[in-house]
């Protein structure tokens, strides 16, 4: 009986030692880095035959949630041809990371899609091609129609191994609706 009691005490003691094991997960907090984050889309319109440049921006520097994105109104002249250059940034990092370059490097997996509603407001044609001779859409040409208002949807389609020149495959990395006014 005495032995049994001793055994009990040894077990209890062993247990209390184990109850106090410790490790602080707070010393080891990984930085809040998201590789794929895109916060900003910049559209640079240059009126053909001139040096008139207008820039429009959609920006959400704190990422998803928090403050909502701030989106500029796009205003263009009717029946005019513009060359368009698109830039995407991650402004949550300091300094901001230009993701356009990374997209250009992986052009075979990416496609910028520009959709106007109503369609007659603006027609976009990409002028750049990837290694498979499919459009990319970082650089292109926009021709405006008659005066009117609507939206310009800018999508960056991520199409790993499935890019075929159409918008259908893949998923959205960017999907922004810019208010558009042609006047």
């Amino acid at each position: 009986m005495k032995i049994n009691r001793k055994l009990t005490w040894v077990m209890l003691l062993g247990m209390t030692a184990l109850f106090t094991q410790c490790k602080d997960s707070g010393e080891d907090v990984a930085p809040d880095d998201e590789n794929e984050l895109i916060t900003t889309v910049i559209l640079k319109f240059t009126e053909q035959g001139t040096t008139n440049v207008t820039t429009f921006k959609s920006s959400d520097p704190d990422g998803e949630g928090g403050n909502p994105p701030v989106i500029d109104n796009i205003t263009l002249k009717p029946a005019t041809t513009y060359s368009v250059e698109t830039q995407i940034l991650d402004e949550s990092k300091s300094p901001a990371v230009d993701i356009t370059k990374e997209v250009a490097e992986e052009a075979v997996d990416h496609l910028f899609v520009y959709t106007t509603s109503p369609a007659a407001l603006l027609a976009y044609t990409a002028s750049d091609k990837d290694a498979n001779n499919l459009p990319i859409g970082i650089k292109g040409q926009a021709v405006t129609g008659a005066a009117g208002t609507g939206t310009l949807k800018v999508q960056l389609r991520h199409q790993v191994g499935t890019k075929n020149g159409s918008a259908t495959p893949g998923s959205d990395d960017v999907n922004v609706d810019f208010p558009l006014k042609v006047q």
């Binding site: 109850f19 094991q21 410790c22 490790k23 602080d24 997960s25 707070g26 080891d28 907090v29 990984a30 809040d32 998201e34 590789n35 794929e36």
Partner: peptide, 23 residues
Amino acid sequence: SSLYQYNLMNGRPLIPNFNQFTV
């Protein structure tokens, strides 16, 4: 019964690191 637990998290932000103790 006791439970002691810690979680270490890495990558895209989703859940925090934590320490948890239950008795």
